[in-house]
Structures are given as C-alpha cells and as structure tokens.
C-alpha cells in the first residue's frame, strides 16, 4: 500500500464529520418534531447522513492504516480532531432554523457530491454517487420548508429571517481556503471548496428570494470548525454521542 496522503485523509474526515455531526444533531428531533411526518423525515435524513459518515470515515480509516475503523473515528476522537463545519454542530433551535440550516448545507453538499463523482479516488466517487441521490432529496425538502415558512405568516417569516440572519455568517466557512483543499484539487480527489461559492449562491439565493427573505450581507465574522476549532456546542454534542463507547469501551450490538 502506498503511503497515505494526510491531506486526502483530512479531506475525507471533513466530509465524514459534516455528515456525522449534522446527522447526530438532527436526530435530536426524533420524537419532538412539530408533526409526525416531519419527525419521520428528520429521522430518515439523519440516517442518510450517518450512513454517509460511516462510509466516509471507514474509507478514511483504511487509508490512514492505523487500524481505526469508522466507530473508533466517530466515537473516540476528541473535539479538536473533528473537522466538521461549525454550522453542522449549532443547536437545532426551532424547526425554522433547522430547516434553514438543512437548506444551506444540503445544497452545498449536492454541489460537492456532483464534483466528487469525478474524484480520482474511486471509493470516494462511489460514495458520492450514492450520497448525491440522498442529498438532493434533503435539499428539496428543506427548500420547500424555507419557502413555506419564509413566505408564510408574519410570525413564521420573522422567525425564518432570524434563523437566516443567525446562520448565514457561518456559511462563509464553507468556502474558506484550507491547505488540504489545495492538495485535493492538485491531486484530483476533490475540488477546493472555495470553487463552489458562486454555484452555491446561484442555487440558494433565488430560493431565499422566493421565500421573501433578505439575504444578509457578508460580515468579517469567521468560524473555524473545519480547522478543528469549534464552537462551545460541539463538546456537549460529543459528550452525549460518545457516552456509550466511553463508558463501555468496545461495546457492540
């Protein structure tokens, strides 16, 4: 086996952690969503994301060659070793904010998977081909709700706008330059995420406009989750997610 490329592993870890952490976060809705249909939708989308995370982290673990499988990567790393976007770890808050977050993230994921279909890493290309079908449904589902809530009652409009104002600054992180991106683009295993910014805006802005929402201006605010510097929320999420493996190491079911 060839020497693992650390940038390649880092890139896969970023993809896997995005899916894992948002999947875990969204699963908190299980049993609490406003209506039964949405309860099932959120649980199903969480499952899709956790399934994607499993494939991505298993692949990252194999390339790393230290004998770590997807469970060890998911459950036994500490906070600073996670590479997910900060957006994915933020609390769900209300249903509106959950849907706006899904809308912003799922559309980013769709664009990323589209590019990764042509990855020089055939395993990653296979995961992309599988995941893109799921991500499109997530994007569509969230887009429906963003329009419905944004262009809904005065109350739903106000709350959806507040959600967008809160979340929008975190989307700058999607496109921030990252050293492993340069290696990915050079080696052909994935695009630099900054390349996706124009395409992403051209997909999300028209829907936000249709939802009668005001797209916030960019600010100097920066977040650094994908660099391993997280918000205060990730530690709380991990303490719950990792509890079982930390308490009963190696437990299986």
């Amino acid at each position: 086996m060839t020497t693992p490329n650390p940038a390649h592993i880092e890139y896969l870890t970023r993809l896997g952690d995005n899916a894992l952490i948002l999947g875990q976060r969204m699963s908190e809705w299980c049993g609490h969503a406003p209506v039964l249909e949405e309860d099932m939708a959120l649980a199903n989308m969480s499952l899709d994301l956790i399934g994607q995370a499993r494939m991505l982290l298993a692949h990252a673990g194999q390339l790393e060659g230290k004998g770590r499988d997807e469970d060890q990567l998911a459950f036994l790393r500490t906070e600073m070793h996670y590479r997910n976007l900060t957006l994915c770890e933020l609390p769900n808050a209300d249903f509106g904010r959950t849907m706006v977050r899904n809308f912003l993230f799922a559309n980013f994921q769709v664009l990323l998977w589209e590019r990764l279909l042509a990855s020089s890493d055939s395993e990653l290309a296979a995961i992309a081909a599988k995941s893109i079908k799921e991500a499109r449904y997530h994007a569509q589902h969230a887009g429906d709700w963003v329009v419905r809530l944004g262009d809904g009652t005065a109350e739903s409009h106000e709350r959806t706008q507040a959600a967008l104002d809160y979340l929008w600054p975190y989307t700058a992180e999607f496109f921030a330059a990252n050293p492993s991106d340069e290696a990915a683009a050079a080696a052909g295993f994935g695009p630099a995420w900054s390349e996706l910014e124009a395409a992403w805006e051209s997909v999300v802005v028209p829907v936000l406009t249709e939802a009668t929402l005001t797209v916030p201006a960019r600010t100097p605010f920066k977040s650094f989750g994908k660099f391993g510097r997280h918000s205060e929320h990730l530690g709380h999420l991990l303490s719950e997610m990792q509890y079982m493996q930390r308490t009963y190491p190696g437990a299986q079911w």
Binding site: N107, V110, I132, Y137, Q140, G143, V203, P206, E210
Partner: peptide
C-alpha cells in the same frame, strides 16, 4: 429529482 435546480 434533478441536481441543477433542487428547488421545489
């Protein structure tokens, strides 16, 4: 569902 315009 198509990819280019995953709107509604």
């Amino acid at each position: 569902v198509g990819g280019a315009q995953p709107i509604r």
